[in-house]
Amino acid sequence: MTLNKEQIKRLFIGFDKPLALVIFLLMCVGLIALYSAAINMPGRVEDQIRNIVLTFILMWAVATLSTQTLMKFAVPLYTIGVGLLIAVAVFGLTKKGAKRWINLGIVIQPSEIMKISMPLMLAWYFQKREGNIQWFDYVVALLLLVLPVGLIAKQPDLGTGLLVAAAGLYVIYLAGLSWKLIFPVLIAGLLCIGTILAFEDKICQQDIKWHILHDYQKHRVCTLLNPTSDPLGKGFHTIQSVIAIGSGGLVGKGWLKGTQSHLEFIPEKHTDFIFAVFAEEFGLLGECALLVLFLLLIARGLVISASGATLFARLLSGAITMVFFTYVFVNMGMVSGILPVVGVPLPFMSYGGTALVTLGLGCGILMMVAREKRLMQS
């Protein structure tokens, strides 16, 4: 059976055209960068193309849902996610010193579920409290957030914990949390950063313990402040990626001509550090073009969020958009040497199926919110 033009149009009615175009362009740029980064890793590009196809199918499926349908999944997904995180803590699989996985016939990483289920749960909670949100609702929301973030931090998995915490905090902020409560926390954070910078020489001594962080996390922060203190260990990632970015100059060395990546100086070059590969080969102009694409993605997400038909839709889509910003900021920050290395991928560019599926889910939700608004206006 052949589909006519109208039937094909109806199949993609859920797609927001501006958002879909930006995502498509980012994926194309990502494949170009990945081809160069993984040129000595057969099968990586083919695997990523398969992941992209699956992501678009998932995005399409989610975009055709309604927000009412999605709300029904909020509590079950959150409950299952927390239950699996507890199961990981009790009898999870340990790899390279981290207990993050569980074998349920297939090996899964439950913390990935929380990237979507956390903002989904909080948006559902505030939707139920719409019109009668009190101070204690923010306390309840924080408790709902602290539980999974604490379990993820215990694994330990700082990168995923950061993203889950950010997703939840964005919902809480967008739900109307007063700046009178946010401002003191920001001041305290700045004071902590200032203290670390001022007393780096003393607090980074080997015999000094940071009780709120693991030793390897302390080492990451200290090597961020002074990468040359461990140039062949934890500081190696930062030093080599900064060299790659700087050596790209204005226009770059040209596609497939990056020496830092092709001579194997950049670790994890096809995943977390793919931005260094891209920057070396396409230079400052390429970086600016990439930043424009990410800014367009975030801007379109915020426009969709602002026009959401319900509080649930606005909170969820707004939080997802700001999580995209967090992905980009943290990844580019750690690759550029201004943030610690925490294992956060660059959206739609880093190799990996799990992260791409999570991003696809988020984009599908944005498209769902945009579709419902269009249907209301028609």
Rank of each mutant, 00 (worst) to 15 (best):
I338V: 15
I245N: 08
S36W: 00
E6V: 00
V62H: 00
I239C: 08
K373M: 03
L225E: 05
F265T: 10
V251Q: 11
V357W: 02
H211N: 11
I196G: 07
F136K: 14
V242T: 12
V341G: 02
I32R: 01
L346Q: 07
S305P: 02
V335E: 01
V344E: 06
F275D: 02
H237C: 04
K99H: 13
G353T: 00
L163K: 02
F278D: 09
M367D: 05
V88T: 14
L186Q: 03
E46Y: 08
S350Q: 06
L169F: 12
R374N: 01
L225F: 09
G233Y: 10
G92S: 13
V277G: 05
I243K: 05
G301R: 03
T310C: 09
M27S: 09
T271D: 14
H262N: 15
D230R: 09
L359R: 04
L285P: 00
G83F: 08
I86G: 10
L346R: 08
L120R: 03
I116E: 03
F282E: 06
A166G: 11
G150N: 12
R44P: 05
L65F: 11
L293R: 08
C363A: 14
R44V: 12
A38C: 07
K234A: 12
I208N: 02
I86L: 15
G254F: 11
L339V: 05
T326F: 08
V323W: 02
L26S: 02
A289V: 14
P42L: 00
L21C: 09
L65D: 01
S229H: 00
L190S: 14
S66I: 09
V171K: 01
S317W: 04
Q205L: 13
L34Y: 03
L311G: 06
I133D: 09
M349G: 03
F183G: 10
L256H: 13
Y216I: 08
I239M: 08
L144P: 06
L197N: 10
I13F: 07
L297C: 08
V146T: 14
G248T: 01
L77S: 15
L77K: 02
R129L: 12
V149S: 04
Y125I: 12
L295F: 12
K234C: 06
T271H: 12
A74Y: 14
R10W: 11
L84F: 07
L151W: 07
I133M: 13
D230E: 06
Y351Q: 07
L77W: 05
Q240E: 15
L316N: 04
V277R: 03
I106C: 11
A33I: 01
L65I: 05
M349H: 00
N51G: 10
K257R: 15
F73Y: 15
S229K: 07
M349K: 00
M114I: 12
W210Y: 10
S336T: 06
V330W: 08
I23A: 05
I86H: 01
G194K: 10
L144F: 15
Q260Y: 06
D272K: 06
E287T: 13
H211S: 13
I102W: 07
A370F: 05
V171D: 02
D137C: 13
F325W: 08
D157T: 09
I193M: 13
F199R: 09
V140H: 08
E264N: 15
V22R: 02
I106S: 13
L145R: 03
